[in-house]
Amino acid sequence: MKRIIEKHPLAIRWFHWVNFPILAIMIWSGLLIYWANDAYSIRVFDQLIFKFFPQSFYKALHLKQRLAEGMAFHFVFMWIFFLNGFLYVLYTWISGEWRYLLPDKNSFKEAWAVLLHDLHLSKKPLPTQKKYNAAQKIAYSAIIVMGLGSILTGLAIYKPIQFQFICNVFGGYTSCRLIHFILTIGYCLFFLIHIIQVVVAGWNNFRGMVAGFEVVKEESEKD
């Protein structure tokens, strides 16, 4: 016997699917800006370990510096990114959806159990979950904080004089730019892990974010 259960409201689905391409454009245009001054690398005792990005990267992909184009796209779509994020947070607060998203005192312990289960390192049954498991609560809450961090550091980079107080809070212009770049790496990792988990979870989970419901198979009383 199959039963349909509601999963995600229409507003949540809209905010999710609007944010996906917007954030992708923001990352792409941000890279165009960064490539004009690719200053970051990983060093250990002044020994270069990895550079974001090596010159061979540009040559292999025939990339050209497109600073003006990157800034034009970035500064337009950042307002859409901000508006969509603001409306999402406002909706979750007014509708009460935040109750499903906000981690509680047991979330980190339960998230570790979810991680071990997903990596097939533990066969223990997972804790009872509602709409989201503990790992999802932490990840989705973190992405909201990251979004706020990107907006604030982005404004500080965009207008360092007008938003000098924000610049100072994050340690200055150079620090704001570094934090902004690290957050971008965080989005890319989130994208990768999120897509992998969607594939592993299967069609029913994906349908929940597209159509708003899941189909649950239940055992009949005769069984």
Rank of each mutant, 00 (worst) to 15 (best):
N133H: 05
N133D: 12
N133Q: 14
A134I: 04
A135E: 03
Q136T: 13
Q136E: 15
Q136V: 06
Q136D: 03
K137R: 06
I138F: 08
I138L: 15
A139F: 02
A139R: 08
A139W: 07
Y140N: 11
Y140P: 09
Y140S: 14
Y140D: 07
S141P: 07
A142T: 12
A142V: 09
A142P: 12
A142I: 01
I143V: 12
I143L: 07
I144A: 06
I144R: 04
I144G: 06
I144S: 04
V145P: 03
M146W: 09
M146S: 04
G149Q: 05
G149F: 05
G149M: 10
S150M: 15
S150L: 15
S150V: 13
I151G: 08
I151H: 10
I151Q: 12
L152C: 09
L152Y: 11
L152S: 06
T153W: 11
G154W: 03
G154N: 09
G154K: 04
G154M: 09
L155Y: 05
A156M: 06
A156K: 05
A156H: 01
I157K: 07
Y158R: 08
Y158N: 08
K159W: 12
K159S: 14
K159Y: 08
P160R: 05
I161W: 12
I161F: 11
I161P: 03
I161N: 12
I161M: 05
I161Q: 15
Q162N: 13
Q162E: 14
Q162D: 15
Q162K: 15
F163I: 01
F163G: 02
F163K: 07
F163D: 01
F163L: 04
Q164N: 13
F165T: 11
F165S: 10
I166V: 05
I166H: 01
I166G: 08
I166T: 12
C167Q: 14
N168L: 13
N168E: 15
F170V: 00
F170N: 04
F170E: 08
F170H: 02
G171A: 02
G171P: 07
T174L: 14
T174N: 12
S175P: 07
C176N: 10
C176W: 01
C176I: 10
C176A: 13
C176G: 08
R177K: 13
I179R: 00
I179H: 02
I179D: 00
I179S: 00
H180V: 02
H180P: 10
H180R: 06
H180L: 01
F181G: 00
F181H: 08
F181C: 04
L183R: 06
